[in-house]
Write a protein that binds this DNA or RNA. Structure first.
Lengths: 342, 342
DNA sequence: CAACGTCATGGTAGCGCTACCAATTGTCAG
DNA sequence: CTGACAATTGGTAGCGCTACCATGACGTTG
């Protein structure tokens, strides 16, 4: 007499409808969908056609509740507009697009507290895996990651103490290679120009400093940084500041390519010859660096590949076979171009 | 005798634990969390302290199942690395970061079929709202959107026939304004250079054509396009092609700023004077266009604002007060700069 | 002062699915 | 031929939460 059907649910078919239509138990339908190998050929076919006829799609919320595990990858990056992280995210999406996993992306705005907050939001969903940028989590975030009960991949950097898995490269070595290249090319008064100065930029700066120290060229006045978010405009302004401070500046290592581009444009505008008067090195090697005039030397990083690898490692861990290598260093490559070809 | 506690769940406290501790019914806890106004001051305080002591966080999956509504915004964009969409997405994130809503972002790769697939994945989650880029959904996608049972906002464009809500601007008018500006500035052999050529680019092209026709300047050979994804590199190559085809070319309207930048760099490389010999206009007005040398005229679009407005409209609709204006045109602004200052 | 709201609270019954534990059948070694 | 065991299928009992309805304690009103 009662009609419980479609009382609350929008009337979409449920697993029970499929089971009834196929003349089997609900649990068998559930199995046929998740582990087809454990259901006989016959039933599987019957169930499949019932699913198609009804247009049945499993409810991910019910599934997550019953199995205490959501088919969701939680991803935390510090910025969505920074091309570098956008590429990592693209790699993650491309690797996950044909599987059952959904992606929940969080923007930490380079803030440890915001990262913590987002982890608190992500945790209760019981995600299948977490991917977070960087290795500088707050102690609270670190604890949340350790107790998340799922694989965790830290990306973009390598470090000595992974929470679980890790894919990236050494920003220190990248910065060092950039500075060494400028030194070898014959530049002497080599500045460091950096915006935002997040932990990764700090490590690039440390690499720069190590190279400069080793060559006996270090001078604190050569360093120009700001916590302000990076932009091409800012690159121009910081370069002006740097030149005002050290008129003899003959080279700059920029903490990223946006800054480098700003420097390049300012050189054009001020008729400063590149690479003759000033040499420029960027970081990340965005597409445009090769096309710029003059083309700009930059440290190539494998952002897209980092995203892909992070997913591959997480998926392996989910399936029970954890990668033998917990920390993967994808390295970088210094791309020598016209901007330092003196 | 049985110990059902923590049999499957990871032992996290549930609403029942809070209710027991606070000496109230579970439903009252639920209400205190969702509609504090409907619970007396006393109980609310008791419940709050129980929540804090236990560290209770509601399970979003259970909540979604019971209420047939997930606190999720589904967002579909054609690209994650294209700065334009990244900014829209950033606007969405910033507007949603302090509310209860999570965001699920899908990448359609400029493919209608992929968009359809993603909508099929998003639908069963019963999202609170959907935000999709563009107005050119396939008929199937359109039906999915119409029957989604939640507010839908189409962003980045305006058009005559919204599924539900819409916020964007007219790409046709933007393209027309760009071409008209070049014509007014005295350029005559004005090319159109475009990569990817998604529907929005097509409409910019149509606007260009309208302006050129009106001035009696249209010539099919002036148009150089490719379906290949846009990049600065490609801008250089397409410009070379265009010049080879029409050596008398004296201006270009580029379908986006990446292409414009490629053209600018190629002009430098080939010693083509800008704006004297060739005028350049871009589209979107990325940060760097103002800093470039010479600075590049571009059509400013309000991507971030579009994201924010889309969320505001969706939230209003969720709360029951649908915006009086279903279609919001945020317009654009032609930024005149050195690259067309002849 | 009876009838009728209104407010605050709680009990019950699911939401749609899967973990867990049978039950049934067929297969095969001993 | 029998017991053991694997393969297949199903029933039951939740997962943690909220919709719905009920209850009792207060005003409020004619």
């Amino acid at each position: 007499m009662i009609k419980p059907r479609s009382r609350r649910g929008g009337g979409r078919p449920t697993i029970a409808d499929v089971a009834r239509k196929a003349g089997v138990g609900a649990i068998t339908v559930s199995r046929a969908l998740r582990e087809p190998g454990r259901v006989s050929e016959d039933l599987r076919r019957q169930i499949e056609s019932a699913v198609n006829e009804l247009g049945y799609v499993p409810d991910p919320n019910a599934r997550a509740l019953a199995s205490a595990r959501a088919e969701v990858f939680g991803v935390l990056v510090p910025s969505l507009t920074n091309n570098v992280f956008a590429e990592v995210v693209r790699g993650i999406y491309d690797s996950l697009s044909d599987g059952p996993f959904r992606i929940q992306l969080g923007n930490t705005h380079y803030s440890g507290l915001e990262e913590e907050r987002l982890l608190q939001v992500f945790g209760p969903q019981r995600p299948a895996a977490l991917i977070v940028a960087g290795i500088d989590q707050t102690p609270a975030s670190r604890k949340l990651l350790e107790t998340a009960g799922c694989p965790v991949v830290q990306v973009m950097e390598t470090g000595p103490d992974p929470v679980d898995l890790m894919v990236g490269f050494s920003h220190f070595e990248g910065g060092k290679a950039a500075a060494e290249h400028l030194i070898e090319a014959g530049y002497r008064r080599i500045g460091f120009i950096g915006a935002r100065m997040d932990p990764r930029s700090q490590r690039r700066l440390a690499g720069y400093r190590a190279a400069m120290d080793a060559a006996g060229l270090f001078d604190a006045r050569l360093i120009t940084t700001t916590p302000v978010p990076s932009s091409v405009t800012l690159g121009r302004e910081l370069f002006r500041d740097a030149l005002a401070k050290v008129p003899s500046l003959d080279g700059v290592f920029c903490n990223n390519d946006d800054i480098a581009l700003g420097v390049l444009f300012e050189c054009h505008r001020a008729s400063i010859a590149v690479p003759k008067t000033v040499g420029i090195v960027g970081f990340n090697d965005l597409d445009m660096m090769e096309v710029a005039f003059p083309s700009v030397t930059s440290v190539r990083t494998y952002r897209y590949e980092i995203g892909r690898r992070a997913v591959a490692m997480a998926l392996a861990a989910i399936e029970g076979n954890r990668p033998e290598q917990r920390v993967v260093d994808l390295g970088f490559e210094l791309k020598r171009r016209e901007s330092t070809a003196r």
